[in-house]
Design a protein around this nucleic acid. Structure first.
Length: 264
DNA sequence: ATACCTGTTTCCCG
DNA sequence: CCGGGAAACAGGTA
């Protein structure tokens, strides 16, 4: 379930491979996650290299290796990272297996919406260093939200929140959580928000991003009690604030859960 | 069997 | 050229 905090937690699964060399890199050549690159590059460049750094930016992950090798991973909808025994054999949907002395670092993705990138340069590649500030960073400010709203004034605010150019890391459940706390109807066109609503939306974005990182991002569990998260996945549940029925419908092309008695 | 799905890119339309 | 929305991607799960 990879958005901001789940991605951070997934990334930490490879922490035990830090400072260790890759003895062998096995790939699944037919996997669509290699659509941007040649899968042989991954085995060629990663074999023998030491994993130095594991970090995330929004939904993107970057693994830095010795020899100026940078591995980029995006989990898509169903991608996951795992830490398996050193003797682990590659399985059906394992796109990449990095065998080390004490464990195997695995990226698997049955649905293959994820994406792998690799780069050998003295600096981090542009697909990493050129990313806009993620919603957890200090550089993510009110001005970014204001500009997005002005430029995309005809978009439902739900769809705008999911735009990774402005809100890197925001995913479907987080967007619902933010809009619920900001008391905004997800279908509201961005251009109809006044300055106070925009500022409130921005503040709730910070709150949800920080809260998710503290709970989901570190422990891998669920967000705190009382969050919309716990009642958004199926029909017929009640708004935690008003105790009145929630609605689930498609907005901006995604399943959206919201509280008509609370959000306007 | 059928419908639905936590993400992004591509295609089509106005 | 630009913006918005649907479709497509491919398989698991209920």
């Amino acid at each position: 379930m990879p958005e901001l905090a789940e991605v951070a937690f997934a990334c930490s699964k490879w922490n035990s491979g830090l400072d260790k060399r890759v003895r062998e890199a096995a790939t699944l050549p037919t996997s669509r996650v290699y659509r941007e690159s040649d899968h042989t590059e991954f085995s060629n460049l990663l074999t023998g290299k030491k994993l130095i750094l594991a970090e995330t930016h929004g939904k993107q992950m970057l693994f830095s290796f010795s020899g100026n090798i940078y591995l980029g991973i995006h989990l898509g909808m169903t991608g996951s990272l795992a830490n398996e025994p050193a003797t682990y054999e590659i399985q059906k949907y394992d796109a990449l297996v990095l065998r080390q002395s004490e464990c195997s670092l695995v990226f698997r993705d049955p649905r293959q919406f994820g994406r792998l990138r690799i780069s050998c340069r003295t600096k981090p590649p542009p697909w990493w260093s050129d990313l806009p500030p993620s919603i957890t960073e200090n550089e993510f400010n009110l001005e970014i939200v204001e500009k997005a709203v002005i430029r995309h004034n005809r978009r439902p605010i739900k769809a705008l929140l999911l735009d990774q150019n402005y809100f890197p890391g925001m995913g479907n459940w987080m967007a619902d959580e933010v809009l619920w706390r900001a008391k905004l109807r997800p279908s509201r066109l961005a251009g109809t928000l006044d300055v106070n609503e925009i500022a409130y939306l921005y503040n709730q974005t910070l709150f949800v991003a920080k809260g998710a990182m503290k709970s989901v991002g570190i422990k891998g569990g669920d967000p705190p009690k009382g969050w919309l998260f716990h009642v958004r996945w199926k029909d017929g549940l009640l708004c935690p604030k008003t105790k009145l029925p929630l609605i689930r419908e498609s907005i901006g092309g995604r399943t959206t859960c919201w509280s008509p008695s609370y959000q306007s």
